[in-house]
Design a protein around this nucleic acid. Structure first.
Lengths: 230, 230
DNA sequence: CGACCATTTGATATGGATCAAGCGATGTGG
DNA sequence: CCACATCGCTTGATCCATATCAAATGGTCG
C-alpha cells in the first residue's frame, strides 16, 4: 500500500514517507516553494509586532529580509527570547490553535505570510509538504533543546556559543555583523547587557575575537571560542 | 480531494487532516493503542540506560510504570535533565536518525517498546496515527519552551514551578510523592541539590508546603506557590 | 553642535555555588 | 537484633559569578 522508501534528498529516513500514488512535488523544497508562490509579502518596521502570544496561529511565516525574534515575558517583565529567525527561516508554526510566543521584527523586515489552512490542505495532497512541516517542527525542537543546554552554561560559555551559532548562520566573510542589540542578545542568553559586554571584552582579551565596532565581530580564533563554548 | 474538517475529538483544528478515503481508526488514541498492541514490554532497573545520545533512534517508547529521565551532559560532566516521563507518556521520538538525548530509568520501570518503522508505516495508512505523532512532537516542543522559560527564573521560582508541574502530572490526593532524587531535581532545574533543599525549606517556612519526609511533599497553599512560581 | 540612545566600564551587592559538617534512613555483616 | 557503613538529604559558613547601580563614552540623527 505504501513504499517506505522516502529517501530522495540525502536527508535520510523520514517519518512521513511518500506514497506512490501521491503527487510528487517538483523540488526538494516543496513547502518553501509553495510559500514563495502563495505567500503575501509584508513589511514590518523595526520592533513591530508580527503576532502576539495567545493570538490565533492562522499563518505561517518566512523571513525574506531582516530578522525576527520570538519571545515570552514573565509577569514582572523579564523577557526571554526563544529564537532569532534569519532570511530563509520559517517561523510561526504551532501545534495548537494559538501562538505560544510573540514575534517581532528586530529590524525592518520583509516577511512572506501564508494561511495555515492552505499549507495544511496542501500537505494533505502532497506528502512532501507534510514531511517538511514535520522536519520544521523537528528543527524547532532541536533548537529548543540546545537552548536549554545553553542556559545552564556559564556566562562566557553562553556568549562564545552565541557567536559561533550566529557565525554559522549568518555566513559572513570573516567578519560577523550582529543584527540585534545587546539587550536582545542578553535576553536570548539569560544574561544582562553588562555581562554580555564584559564577556565580549574578555573574549577580545583572550584574542578569540576582535570587536572593531559594537555590532561587528571578527572571529579571530574559533578554536579558542569552541574551547570556551562548553 | 480532501475534507478539511478534522475536528472530531474536541482537540480543535489539526495540521494533519483526515481524508475521507483513509481508514478511520477506532479510538481517539490510535497511536497509544497500537503501541499497546504491538509494543514489547521491557523492564529497566533503576538507573539503567534505555538509550544513549547519538544512538540510532529506531524505537518509540511508552512508560507503563516507573519514571524515565532524558538528559544531556556537557564535556565537563554537568548534566541537564530535559524531561521526566511518567506512566502513560511516550518518549524517544526523534526527527533525525539519532537520539539527541540519553534516556535512563529513574527507578525500576516497565516500558513498552515499538519499532519506529512500524509506527511510520502505520502512520502512512492511518492518518490519525500521523496526527498523533505530530501532536506528540508538538507537546515536546511546548515542554521544551516552558523549560527554557523556567531556566531564567530565580531558584525559589524554579522549585515552586517544579512542584506545581509535578503535582499536576502525578495527580495525587493531597500529598505529592516525588519519584526522583534531589540530584535529579537539581539537574532538571539547573540548580544544586543544596539550593533545592534550601528552597524547599524556605517554601515550608512560608507555609506553602509541608515536607514530612524528603520525598513527600504536601502542597499546603497553592496560591502562595503560584505566586512564587513566576 | 547638541540631544538621545546604545554600549562600555567601574564599583558594589547578592543569589546561588561551593566547601564542610551533621543527620537520618537504609542496608549489611556480625 | 544490633553495630556500623553507606547514601541521600539538610544545614551552616564562605566564596564567587553575575546582577545591580552608576558614570563615562561613543555613535546617530536632528
Amino acid at each position: 500500500m505504501l513504499t517506505e522508501t522516502a529517501i530522495e534528498n540525502g536527508s535520510s529516513e523520514h517519518l512521513f514517507a511518500r506514497t506512490a500514488r501521491q503527487k510528487r512535488s517538483v523540488g526538494s523544497h516543496a513547502l518553501t516553494a509553495s510559500i514563495e508562490l502563495m505567500g503575501s509579502p509584508m513589511l514590518f518596521p523595526r520592533n513591530a509586532e508580527i503576532y502576539g502570544e495567545k493570538e490565533p496561529a492562522d499563518y505561517l511565516y518566512k523571513v525574506v529580509s531582516g530578522i525576527v525574534r520570538t519571545y515570552r515575558v514573565l509577569i514582572d517583565g523579564r523577557r526571554q527570547i526563544g529564537a532569532f529567525y534569519l532570511p530563509g527561516d520559517l517561523f510561526g508554526l504551532e501545534i495548537g490553535k494559538e501562538h505560544t510566543c510573540s514575534a517581532e521584527a528586530v529590524r525592518d523586515s520583509k516577511v512572506l505570510v501564508i494561511k495555515r489552512s492552505s499549507v495544511v490542505s496542501h500537505a494533505a495532497w502532497d506528502n512532501e509538504v507534510g514531511r517538511q512541516l514535520w522536519e520544521l517542527a523537528g528543527r524547532e525542537l532541536e533548537r529548543a533543546q540546545n537552548h536549554i543546554l545553553l542556559l545552564v552554561k556559564t556566562a562566557p560559555e553562553r556568549v562564545a556559543c552565541f557567536l559561533l551559532e550566529m557565525a554559522e548562520r549568518i555566513q559572513s566573510s570573516g567578519e560577523l555583523e550582529l543584527p540585534m542589540s545587546r539587550q536582545d542578545i542578553a535576553d536570548y542568553l539569560g544574561l544582562t547587557i553588562e555581562t554580555v559586554s564584559r564577556m565580549l571584552a574578555r573574549l577580545e582579551d583572550a584574542s578569540a575575537i576582535d570587536v572593531p565596532s559594537s555590532k561587528r565581530i571578527v572571529l579571530r580564533n574559533r578554536t579558542i571560542l569552541k574551547r570556551m563554548s562548553a
